[in-house]
Design a binder for these strands. Structure first.
Length: 345
DNA sequence: TGCCGAATAT
DNA sequence: CATATTCGGC
């Protein structure tokens, strides 16, 4: 009886271990792609796998468990990172529309486009996402756990290395002289930012306040968002700048412009950065993930008009230039009208 | 006033 | 650089 039990137990453990190894191996494969960014991680996982493997086959002892624990420890260091990575990656090719869902909520409008768009966008994220976790202000969520929870879990592990949340109290402390602490825009924060942007119709039409509201991040101030937005706009505006020579090869990337959003078709980055130590050429891909801007919900959902945005690419001819005509229905308030004008450039 | 965008300052 | 802060228009 007992024997049986322990036998079962043992079996179970072994099985578990096997699965564990498999999982690890899969992780390894995935990490391998980012070898350069996560050399240690790769190493650790590899090591873990090996140790695990070594232990499992036969070797009576039921120490398997201890072993796995050990490897867990070894791996622990990079696990959160890994998980975050996975989370992101997963969301990029499988349903799990995370934030999209997050915001969609009540307006039950699912643009057919949205999905594919999102996918593109997310696969883009893959390129620039910062793998190392960073501070993130806590998000007071209630209505919408689920995916959020998942993500939270992935970073729960790391001890609030919060670079962006020390304030609040300290801010109150100082009488009024000192500068605000720098808000650190973690990739997560940035993602929320991007999403907010997306839902507002793009960086050119979104205003700091709106964005902040949509982001629902505690302690995030208008000014911070404003500043970030400014930076973002700067970057998203003609990521390719140079137009000096027309004759030559215009490998000018062509852009897709939607609602004032410039979307580099493939990527943007002045790839040939300086001396470029052998290492990261890829790592430095813009953090400013470009994204298509679907029309704001108010428009797309139920309306006689979709904002007709005409995008003409300099087809045929050399220039990768794009002509954009945008006849948007200046939304109720004339205040925003000048944005449209700007977009027309 | 508050909010915003652009320009500066750190 | 990436943020913060200031400036000027609305």
């Amino acid at each position: 009886m007992i024997k049986n039990l322990s036998n079962m137990d043992y079996h179970k453990k072994r099985e578990r271990c096997g699965q564990y190894i498999e999982a690890l191996e899969e992780e390894r494969r995935k990490i391998h792609v980012f070898q350069r960014e996560l050399p240690l991680c790769l190493d650790l996982v590899t090591q873990a796998i090996e140790t695990c493997k070594r232990e499992i086959p036969e070797t009576t002892t039921e120490n398997v468990y201890g072993q796995s624990e050990c490897s867990e420890q070894t791996t622990g260091e990079c696990k959160p990172v890994l998980e975050q990575f996975l989370t992101i990656k997963d969301s990029s090719n499988s349903n799990e529309d995370e934030e999209d869902v997050e915001f969609d909520d009540e307006h039950g409008n699912h643009d057919p486009d949205k999905e594919s768009e999102d996918k593109n966008m997310k696969s883009d994220w893959l390129k620039y996402v910062q793998l190392w976790n960073q501070p993130d202000t806590l998000l007071p969520k209630e209505g919408r756990l689920h995916q959020e929870v998942k993500r939270d879990e992935s970073m729960k592990t790391d001890p609030m290395i919060n670079g962006g949340e020390g304030r609040k109290k300290e801010a109150e402390k100082d009488g009024g002289g000192g500068r605000k602490q720098r808000r650190c825009w973690s990739s997560q924060l940035h993602r929320r930012f991007l999403n907010a942007l997306k839902h507002l119709g793009g960086p050119h039409v979104a205003t700091p306040k709106q964005i902040r509201e949509l982001m629902k991040v505690e302690g995030l101030t208008n000014d911070e968002v404003k500043s970030h937005l400014q930076k973002y706009r700067l970057h998203s505006r003609r990521p390719n700048q140079t137009v000096p020579n027309n004759g030559g090869n215009s490998q000018t990337q062509h852009f897709v412009v939607v609602g004032g959003l410039w979307v580099p078709q493939s990527e943007y980055s002045t790839g040939k950065t300086t001396g470029g130590a052998t290492t990261s050429t890829t790592t430095t891909l813009g953090v400013y993930g470009a994204m298509a801007a679907p029309p704001p919900p108010q428009w797309s959902s139920h309306s006689n008009f979709r904002p007709s945005i005409v995008v003409e690419e300099g087809s045929g001819s050399h220039s990768g230039e794009v002509v954009v005509r945008c006849s948007s229905p200046a939304m109720s308030s004339s205040t925003r009208n000048h944005y449209v004008k700007k977009n027309l450039i």
